[in-house]
Simulated assay, not measured.
Amino acid sequence: MTRSKLLRGLTVAGTIALSAVATTPAAHAAASSCTHDWSGPQVCIKADGHDGTPNPGTVTASWTNPPKSRNSATVYITNSEGTSYSFKAKRSGGQIVGHTVPGLQPSGSTLCVRFEGSSHKACLEMINRNGSF
């Protein structure tokens, strides 16, 4: 192989590698937490946040073992500052699941989720490092 063909091959490979890095989406942080009362309702919270900002992105609440008669439930999300949000979650498979985007949260705050009809709640703390999870 000649030197020019080798250099051309390396240049093409380098260009492909750089374009892959340039098109990679920004990093997102993800965190989740569930209740640990195995005899009662299993409630979970998951956040797919934006790393380095106090925006938790999409928050998913799930009730993994609701009564068979429940097809939906109101979800209550509260943060440690006292702000609360509510939305409707619907049965999907064997669980009740809902999603919301609560917006910016104070750095160091905690988000908790509880379902109507259940006293169990799952909480997720935001890390103080730039407000990300």
Rank of each mutant, 00 (worst) to 15 (best):
S4C: 03
A47L: 10
L10A: 01
A29Q: 04
L111T: 11
D51A: 10
H120N: 13
S132T: 12
T53C: 12
W38V: 12
S84I: 03
L124K: 07
I16K: 00
S119A: 12
A17H: 02
V21E: 06
T110P: 01
T78G: 11
N71K: 13
R114K: 14
C123H: 00
W63I: 02
D37N: 12
T24H: 02
Q105S: 06
C112F: 04
A26I: 09
H36L: 05
V12S: 03
V97A: 05
A122F: 10
D48I: 08
I16V: 15
A30M: 06
V59Q: 06
T53W: 11
M126L: 15
R114G: 04
S84K: 09
G103N: 06
S92F: 11
S4F: 09
T11Y: 02
R91E: 08
H120Q: 15
T58M: 14
P67I: 04
S62Y: 07
C112E: 01
G14T: 05
F87R: 07
K88E: 10
Q42W: 10
V12R: 02
F115W: 10
Q95F: 04
Y76K: 13
V97F: 08
T74E: 10
V97G: 06
G14E: 06
V113K: 01
K88N: 08
H99G: 02
A122Y: 00
I45P: 03
G103M: 03
Q105V: 11
K68A: 15
S119Q: 08
I77K: 05
V97K: 15
H36N: 10
G49D: 09
S107R: 10
S119G: 11
N128K: 15
A20G: 14
C44A: 00
H28R: 15
S92W: 14
T60F: 04
A13R: 02
T110V: 12
E125H: 12
K88P: 01
L104R: 13
R3V: 14
I96F: 07
L6E: 08
V43T: 00
V43K: 08
N65R: 06
H28P: 00
T100P: 13
S118D: 11
R129L: 08
S69F: 04
V113Q: 02
S118K: 01
A17W: 10
G131H: 03
S92A: 14
T78D: 13
N130R: 04
H120Y: 14
T74H: 06
A61R: 05
S39N: 00
N130F: 14
T15H: 03
A20L: 15
I45R: 06
G14H: 03
G103L: 06
R3A: 14
V21I: 14
A89H: 10
R114Y: 00
T35W: 07
K90V: 14
V12Y: 09
P67C: 05
P56I: 07
A20Q: 09
D51Q: 11
N65L: 07
K88V: 13
G40T: 03
P66S: 08
H120G: 05
K121G: 02
G49Y: 05
P66E: 02
L18E: 00
E125Y: 07
R70D: 11
S39G: 01
K68V: 14
S72W: 08
G103T: 07
Q95M: 03
V97H: 03
G131L: 05
S72N: 09
E81K: 13
